[in-house]
Amino acid sequence: MALNTPQITPTKKITVRAIGEELPRGDYQRCPQCDMLFSLPEINSHQSAYCPRCQAKIRDGRDWSLTRLAAMAFTMLLLMPFAWGEPLLHIWLLGIRIDANVMQGIWQMTKQGDAITGSMVFFCVIGAPLILVTSIAYLWFGNRLGMNLRPVLLMLERLKEWVMLDIYLVGIGVASIKVQDYAHIQAGVGLFSFVALVILTTVTLSHLNVEELWERFYPQRPATRRDEKLRVCLGCHFTGYPDQRGRCPRCHIPLRLRRRHSLQKCWAALLASIVLLLPANLLPISIIYLNGGRQEDTILSGIMSLASSNIAVAGIVFIASILVPFTKVIVMFTLLLSIHFKCQQGLRTRILLLRMVTWIGRWSMLDLFVISLTMSLINRDQILAFTMGPAAFYFGAAVILTILAVEWLDSRLLWDAHESGNARFDD
């Protein structure tokens, strides 16, 4: 018995066209964080690309023209004298008006014999932002004059995390709450300039795509075929072959399989920071003279006294001054041990922890910024005066060393310790 099946006739004509040209192939790229070699397709503007294995951002879609970056830099340069030299806060102490600005706080630190601690604050609040705007201006002028731009481009990517104007702005709020127990506070004209400078700096850093600047100024022929001998440069993120001198053909720094002496430098910085954190938390970090009496505060006791007036601000200072430094030390110690013992479990967790400490590390400088600003506000000789204690130097040095330890660690070593050939990683 035959089955009668109805015929289905399409209502619209289906047209099949042959592909007349070869589909576009992607360029081969190595991930600078996990060293995976993959094919990167062509990316349009405002599109980002991520590593298929570790999800690290390979290409950032946010990109401004150099002219727009230069305009932002010149605007920031105009704001800087007002943000640093004009009063941020006014207080009335014992019937006398006192003005506080950024430069005055750094000068008070240096004047009291601790120039190293003052230079830490100076670099993060004044030096690094000033280098940022002058570097962008150098790129703008240098591109037109045919100057060598490689050193500036190499420095810009590392400079971003040292620009800490946003953290200093939080420190202004913390210092205001600490001082309000002794005097009446009012915002100064410099505060508005400083807030504007923070906003412009944040926007500029978020749109400063150094890798795209490398592509514009020093374009290189990408690798179009897969080759395990391809290496990625950690300076400019170019994937290719080393030249005859073993250097990256684009930025001219040595092109090595792994960062040289990464573990040794990381261990040295980490152990030194552990040693410095002990006096930083045991010795007094601030000293207040009130009517001839002397009151010393460690980091913890200062947080407890701050909690009596504002528990939320005390929580912020606790996280930045105690929780973050010790968390960074514990995480980095764990990561280094996992590399030495070739741990194969929990790779995803370790990668996330490394990215976390990379982002939060700079916030530990908050305590030094609060001390710097408070020193310029309260300084009335023996009637009422505020000065920093010996722990300030140890704390600042420990924070900087932990930042350097994270920067010096080559994250690809975590993958080397893991089993080879993993296309995915999980716990």
Results as ranks from 00 to 15, higher is better:
residue 6 P to A: 13
residue 8 I to F: 11
residue 9 T to M: 12
residue 10 P to C: 09
residue 11 T to C: 12
residue 17 R to D: 10
residue 17 R to C: 10
residue 20 G to D: 11
residue 20 G to M: 09
residue 25 R to D: 10
residue 26 G to K: 13
residue 27 D to G: 12
residue 29 Q to T: 14
residue 30 R to V: 11
residue 30 R to N: 10
residue 32 P to G: 08
residue 33 Q to D: 11
residue 33 Q to N: 14
residue 36 M to W: 11
residue 36 M to T: 12
residue 43 I to F: 13
residue 43 I to P: 09
residue 63 D to H: 15
residue 65 S to V: 10
residue 66 L to P: 14
residue 66 L to I: 14
residue 77 L to Q: 09
residue 78 L to Q: 03
residue 81 P to T: 05
residue 83 A to K: 03
residue 90 H to T: 11
residue 97 R to F: 05
residue 104 Q to C: 08
residue 107 W to M: 13
residue 109 M to V: 07
residue 118 G to W: 01
residue 119 S to R: 01
residue 131 I to K: 01
residue 133 V to K: 03
residue 135 S to N: 06
residue 136 I to R: 02
residue 137 A to F: 15
residue 142 G to A: 14
residue 143 N to Q: 08
residue 153 L to E: 00
residue 158 R to P: 09
residue 159 L to R: 01
residue 160 K to H: 06
residue 162 W to P: 01
residue 165 L to S: 10
residue 165 L to G: 15
residue 166 D to R: 15
residue 166 D to K: 15
residue 167 I to A: 15
residue 169 L to A: 03
residue 174 V to K: 00
residue 178 K to P: 01
residue 192 F to S: 07
residue 196 A to G: 11
residue 199 I to L: 11
residue 202 T to G: 14
residue 204 T to D: 10
residue 206 S to Q: 15
residue 210 V to A: 10
residue 215 E to T: 09
residue 220 Q to N: 13
residue 230 L to F: 12
residue 231 R to I: 07
residue 231 R to K: 07
residue 232 V to W: 08
residue 238 F to K: 14
residue 238 F to N: 06
residue 240 G to A: 07
residue 242 P to W: 05
residue 245 R to V: 04
residue 245 R to F: 08
residue 247 R to F: 11
residue 253 I to H: 02
residue 256 R to W: 04
residue 258 R to M: 08
residue 261 H to F: 05
residue 266 C to T: 08
residue 267 W to G: 15
residue 274 I to E: 08
residue 275 V to S: 04
residue 280 A to D: 02
residue 280 A to C: 08
residue 284 P to V: 04
residue 289 Y to D: 01
residue 295 Q to A: 06
residue 300 L to Q: 03
residue 300 L to S: 03
residue 300 L to R: 02
residue 302 G to A: 06
residue 304 M to H: 07
residue 308 S to P: 09
residue 312 A to G: 09
residue 315 G to L: 06
residue 316 I to E: 00
residue 326 F to K: 04
residue 327 T to P: 01
residue 331 V to Q: 06
residue 331 V to C: 12
residue 335 L to P: 05
residue 338 S to F: 14
residue 338 S to I: 15
residue 357 V to W: 07
residue 357 V to G: 05
residue 366 L to H: 01
residue 369 F to N: 03
residue 370 V to R: 00
residue 371 I to E: 01
residue 378 I to Q: 00
residue 382 Q to A: 12
residue 386 F to E: 00
residue 395 F to N: 02
residue 396 G to C: 02
residue 398 A to H: 05
residue 399 V to P: 05
residue 401 L to D: 08
residue 405 A to S: 09
residue 407 E to I: 12
residue 410 D to M: 00
residue 412 R to T: 01
residue 412 R to F: 00
residue 413 L to C: 09
residue 417 A to T: 07
residue 423 A to N: 13
residue 424 R to G: 10
residue 427 D to P: 12
residue 427 D to G: 14
